[in-house]
Structure formats: structure tokens, C-alpha cells
Amino acid sequence: MSRPKNKPVHISCENSRQRGAGTLLAWLLLGVCVIFGVALAVGGAGGGVSALWALLDGGGDPLLGRVIVELRLPRVAGAMAVGALLAVSGVLMQTLLRNPLADPYVLGLSGGASCGAILALAAGASGIWVDGGAWLGALATMLVVFGLAGGPGGWERGARLLLTGVVVASGWGAAVSFLLYLMPDERLRGALFWLMGDVSRGTDPRLALGVLALVVGLVWPFSRALNLLAGGPDRAAALGVAVTPLRVMLYLLSSLAAASAVATAGSIGFVGLVTPHLLRLAGCGDHRVLLPASALLGGGLLTLADLLARTVIAPRQMPAGILTALLGAPLFLWLLRRSGR
């Protein structure tokens, strides 16, 4: 190129960028800790920060202590894990499908998992089999959506993919309605949980937390490959990424994450879509930062939503999934409009 003869000046902006990413993660971590503390301290049985301190000190009201440890802690930890799983699953699907509007809820994975779980319930299964049903449902949906929207170059077609997801999701909705209609009344209430998205079921959050650690732990080392994959499979392959095994891994792990989230808390919408999107808008496109930041922000958002859901209309509670969908639907429409320009 014709250019002035002076040597290029290399001003490194790398250090400031790394500092920026570190600051972002530190703020998110701080925010999550605050939300975690507040969610533990606030509730119908009372509490407050003083009760939390007393509990940590080994004293305080023993009854309140039990409420906090046995009721609130699993619920808050569960909300954290589910929000983080949904957000991470959203990041992985968006990268895999190269579509910023992909998420487990929009693509019908949540619906498939709900349907699998309700089918298992209807068959009289319980415990781990219900979770297994949820996972199979999510996996089957992923296969259907990828298969139908796929084909050569098909994954790139955003409209086709979203349409497939929407149609599959509504199909699952009909299947779930049919199952609920047939279900005996005494089982109905338990099955409804899968539709609403609620972290109050009191499921042991350890499975979800374990899956979260597994998924993030397995995917994070591939962050640089994910950065390339976001630019298209051909480009990633041309720069040395083994695309097919990476895609299979992402497919399995994003399904596992979504299914575990649904198995823990039912079908919760929009956390998986909005969280990565907000971070990307904030200029956080590098998966090395995006993955942990999404986990933190998603966990924090869902915990906050659950906190609001159980305090806004106290003493009554509502499922957190209703709140995320109420807030998420307009936000999604806004994002869709923005991306259409």
C-alpha cells in the first residue's frame, strides 16, 4: 500500500482491555454477592442482614436460622445456578448457530424439556427419571431444530432458524397442553410447575451447580476457538479450528445446560437470550470474558427476579418465570427491532 514512511506506532491497548474485562467481572461478582446476601436475608419469615450475621456467627434465632439454611439457601443457590445455566446455554447456542437471537426458550428447547419431564411424570416416573426426560426432550428438540433449519449453509439463515424454533416451541406447547388435559387432577399441580418456571420447588441445587461447573469448565478452554466459530465455520476451520468436534461438543453441552436448568426450575424464558446480548452490547464479545460474565449476570438476574417474585405481592408468591417472561418479552421485541435495522 502507498503510505508514509514512518514506522507504525504500536500503542498497546491490550492492558487496558484486560483491565476492563477484569473490572467488569469484579463488578458482576460483587453484584451477585450482594444479590445473594439480600435474597438470603429477605423473606416472609423475616431476617435482615443482622439475622444473617448472627447465623454466620453461630448464634441467632435457631428457627430463623433453619429457614435461611434449609429453605432460602437452596432456593437462592438454585436460582443462581439456573440463571447461569440458561445464560451460558444461550451464549453457546448463539455462537453455534451464529445467531444473536438464539436461546433455549426461543428455540423450543425449554418446551421440549418440559414436555419430556411431563411425559415422564405422566408415565408415573419420579426423581432422576423426570430430569432424564427433560434432558431427552431438550436433546430431541435440538436435533429437530438443527436438522430442519440445517442443510448446507442453512444454519446461517437466521429467519429460518428462528421460525423453526418458534414452530417447534408451539408444537411442544400443544403437546404439553394435551398431556395436562389428560392428567389426573392430583398430578396436575406438580406438572404445571414445568410450564411456569419456578425456583421454589425446593429441588436440590447441587446437580444444577455441578452441571454449571462442568459445562463452563469444559467450554472455557475453547474460548478462542469459540471466538473464531462466531465468525463462521469456514473461517474458523481455515484458521485451524477443528470445527465438527467443537460443534458437537457445543451442541451436547448447551442442551445439557438448558435441560438441567429446566429440570431444576421448569421453563424460564429470556434469561438465556437477554444476558449474553446485554454483555455483547457492552462490548464483551470475547468468550473468555463472555462465558463467566454471562454465568454471573444470568445467575444474578434470575435470583433478583425470584426475589422480586416472592416479595412484590407478599405474602403471596409468583413463579419467577412469569416475571422474566413479562420483562423479557418487550426486551426481546426491542432487540429484534434493533437487529432488523
Binding site: N227, A230, R235, A237, L281, G283, G285
Partner: peptide, 26 residues
């Protein structure tokens, strides 16, 4: 391996899409 090929062969594609925000330097 893909990596070994990519060290020896580079390709400038006819078209390239960028669905996610990224900086030029990245």
C-alpha cells in the same frame, strides 16, 4: 490436523459475515 493446515494454507473468502460485534484488532 486443521491447525497444521492453517499454518501453511490461508484463504481469503469471497464473502464474510460478522453476526456479532467485534473490533478490527480482535
Amino acid at each position: 490436523s486443521r491447525r497444521a493446515v492453517a499454518r501453511s494454507v490461508g484463504i481469503l473468502f469471497q464473502d464474510q459475515e460478522y453476526p456479532f460485534p467485534a473490533t478490527v484488532l480482535e
